[in-house]
Nucleic acid binder design. Structure first.
Lengths: 261, 261
DNA sequence: TTCTGTGAATTAATTCACAGCG
DNA sequence: CGCTGTGAATTAATTCACAGAA
């Protein structure tokens, strides 16, 4: 799961919408937008929940934190809900975003269609490789890292996307934060440390796969017998001395990001 | 947040490790691997927790579900823990994975270094575009979608990654599942419907950005006054008639995936 | 004395189930 | 009636705080 948030009572005070609810609002919004495009005027909590992949009780509870936007006996007005959720998420305003690290992944992100659609605008692409400077990716010329601070402040960017290799991520993060960015979406497989007040969310392919593998393994040992138990390498003495050094498939460690910047 | 799981009591029965704990094991593993490479023999819960970005009480509680692998007064043996967590996650075995949809994103995933490292092996790259067939990406020749079923069964693949546009995702998903895949990592911005027993986790850039925007918005209306209130477009009558049709920035809807397959 | 392991307490999230509005 | 909105109940996750092993 992508996670994030720095800390803070997990629920943003103020109007106090639970974090779990916030994380689902984009799902509802997507389902609603699809309905809107098909010109469907209203939906019931049941229908919308099913389209969003959640159950209706949860959806109704989620909406109850936003207000009473439905009509009993009828359902929700699609257009109206789209607006209310967009506003709640802050999508009625424009969010300039910079992407740092323009490799395969950075390029994929830059080309992402759904990006521009919901209030997000790619204000700049930044990469440390000088040979990339000036080259357009997704129609936007790549700029050199040296310009980072200027780009952030000139464009009033508050959201940054890090798609660099793991080794460069913290450094890039520090510069982004130093320049005024307060929200970061991190694709590099590293834990970023940021000052209080800065939000970080991470997306990590490797973690997702590992979670799937965990469940996959359970499935395998399910029908056959009771204990799946051993399979390959032998354990090792608990806190005895050191076990064999973990060598093998080349340099891995804090694995390089999805792609070189 | 990447989320997923089909349903099931959220905690996998059997040894009953909480889902939230499973989701953190990969983080601990990464931190431990880094320590292992620096030949650090032991770590305290405090140090490891800090490296993984969680608090120590949580880490200790998480480890308690796996067993008592630490030594009081000392800490945890790094190598031993690496092995135990790897085994728990099912990483001591090899997981062949197929990636469907080889565009920018698919290519970035194929090139992902940390992929091969932790028990995952890219068994095949699949794309519907015949002009890509045979072309190598990250050293692996792309195969045509027609071969999908054969590839899955020949390689005993149980984990599939979908990196196609949203429109093709459900169809690809159905074919993967039909061919025997039981775990899916979905990068397309769609809710996939799968039969009982199949796990789906999703990674969605747009959702992550929207969550960040929500918090970002709160920050903005924090210091100034009490109510951030309005900013752009006007609300609309609640369940009156329909509001203005949401036109604008080109065809968006169920936005196309991060990249064309 | 140090740092793990874990019951107990607390807080968050989900689900139930139904009162009551349209 | 149908379907929302929401208190109450339930379940999961986190945090506290400390007994006890090394």
């Amino acid at each position: 799961m992508a996670t994030g948030r720095n800390h803070r009572p997990a629920t943003s005070r103020s109007r106090g919408i639970p974090e779990a609810t916030v994380a689902r609002l984009p799902l509802y919004l997507r389902a609603l937008t699809a309905l809107s495009e098909r010109s469907v005027p209203t939906v019931s909590s049941e229908e919308l929940a099913s389209a969003a992949g959640v159950n209706s009780a949860k959806l109704r509870k989620d909406f109850s934190y936003l207000g009473s936007y439905g009509t009993r006996g009828v359902g929700y007005d699609v257009e109206y809900l789209v607006y209310q959720i967009s506003r709640e998420l802050g999508l009625t305003q424009d969010w300039p975003v910079v992407i740092v690290g323009i490799g395969n992944l950075g390029a994929a992100l830059a080309n992402y269609g759904g990006f521009a659609s919901r209030g997000f605008r790619v204000a700049a692409l930044i990469d440390a490789d000088p040979t990339l400077s000036g080259k357009p990716v997704a129609g936007i010329p790549v700029q050199h890292t040296d310009e980072l601070e200027k780009i952030i402040s000139d464009n009033g960017v508050s959201i940054g996307v890090i798609a660099t290799p793991a080794g460069a991520a913290q450094q890039v993060c520090d510069r982004l934060v130093g320049a005024g960015v307060t929200s970061i979406l991190n694709f590099a497989p590293t834990v970023l440390s940021v000052p209080e007040g800065v939000d970080v969310r991470k997306v990590d392919l490797s973690i997702e796969l590992q979670i799937l593998a965990f469940h996959e393994q359970r499935k395998a040992g399910e029908e056959p017998a009771g204990e799946p138990e051993t399979d390959t390498a032998p354990p090792a003495a608990p806190p005895a001395v050191a076990v064999q050094k973990r060598t093998g498939s080349g340099p891995d460690g804090d694995v390089p990001a999805v792609m070189p910047a």
